[in-house]
Write a protein that binds this DNA or RNA. Sequence first.
DNA 1: TCAATAGTGTCTTTCAGACAGTATATA
DNA 2: TATATACTGTCTGAAAGACACTATTGA
Lengths: 246, 246
Amino acid sequence: MGNRGKASPPPEAYRPDDYPRPSVTVDIVIFTVLDGDLKLLLIQRGEPPFEGRWALPGGFVRVGDAMADRGEGLDEAAARELAEETGLPEGSAYLAQLHCFGAPDRDPRMRVITVAYYALVRPDLVPLVQAGSDAREARWFSVAEEVKPDRLAFDHAEILEVAVERLRQQLEMAPIAFELVPATFTIAELRAVHEAVMGVTYDPGNFRRRFMRMITDGIIEQAPGKRPTGTKPAKVYRFVRPHPRR
Amino acid sequence: MGNRGKASPPPEAYRPDDYPRPSVTVDIVIFTVLDGDLKLLLIQRGEPPFEGRWALPGGFVRVGDAMADRGEGLDEAAARELAEETGLPEGSAYLAQLHCFGAPDRDPRMRVITVAYYALVRPDLVPLVQAGSDAREARWFSVAEEVKPDRLAFDHAEILEVAVERLRQQLEMAPIAFELVPATFTIAELRAVHEAVMGVTYDPGNFRRRFMRMITDGIIEQAPGKRPTGTKPAKVYRFVRPHPRR
DNA sequence: TCAATAGTGTCTTTCAGACAGTATATA
DNA sequence: TATATACTGTCTGAAAGACACTATTGA
């Protein structure tokens, strides 16, 4: 980028300060899996536009005011928002940038460009969530059963759609399922996460074998103890780098 | 952070207009493959900062000034920049959003957040490129041989790195190689593209079989004619939806 | 005729999916 | 004892990689 930037063939030398600037926000699609169901944290808006509607948590990126204060980076802003909205300590959830949305009319008030992130909260942390969240109403919704995309504020339905798509894709490519189970877990629990996210069922035997390979690959290892299941107790495993952020 | 309205747990009701806003640009990593080599279009900067250094083409997103004019969307801005910088008609290259970069100090002058895109230009269009590009010096660089990441302006080395990574990933997942060959192509040409992008060599026989499957899948089909190769002429194929944009 | 590339065939390994079978806990 | 789930084994088919082989052109 550079100066010049404006119109098609104009020569050079634009002082960027001359350009109108958009507001920039981060919005976060916060997922967890509870009881074998993919859930999403939404916040009820307290004022217009979309008053009373449910929306993704988010907020403005702190940009600073000039030379002195340059504000925060995008990942930083997202981590801060995530912590603020959930009450969880920073770094306790997986967080990754998703996509940038900037349709001119996505906010009726003004031009707002948002950098969407998605976050994965381990289910054992969910009980801690409500605690820290601020005044506004926050609730977990079942993505499959409860979320009504056309009732979401702004373009958040579109963001959610991209997020689910990306989550599914990542789940098949990266060792990311561990971000959605407690520190130790059984194969069945891991399978439940996959099934909840992908919206399919997996053959228990085949699924197990697939993850047994991760043991020989050194990605997961058996942990001490067993998990009672109602019938035969199951072995528990843990992710080798115990719940890595990145 | 010091916007006057800091913001951590504050109740509500910020008039977004109160917040300082960043400049927002789009930067485009424009790839092509020429002579079996992955190339990148860079532009030499004519003024500080980074005067004389090579940079990704890009420019400011038109944001409009108020109610009346809301400006353009991000994809729109990227398509416009791409057209302006290459002289190619809009829509003649594949274009997809890559990632958003917003480190506070990525532009020494001021706070600038950039939405990075990557573009794929078919090699048969490359000769048309210089024509339309404006006064500034633009040149194709071999990504493997010529680009010196630490000589690039701003954080463009980082953007490039992410772009190459994404391109490789996409090449293995999506029918995207067709964006880097002429409308009709031989298997060897397609293989050359894959080899250039991935930086490896493929067994010709195995590679062929892999793409023969795309015929039965209806993704590519044989086209009339043969391509002389110096020895035995090769069959030519075409992408079934002839070079789809999206 | 030779060199070079186009194009085909075969063998092996890996892995996913279907599915049967065994083991071990609780009710 | 019954049953539900943990866990193991087997078969099949798809696909990738290594590699040998045939076909067809230009020089």
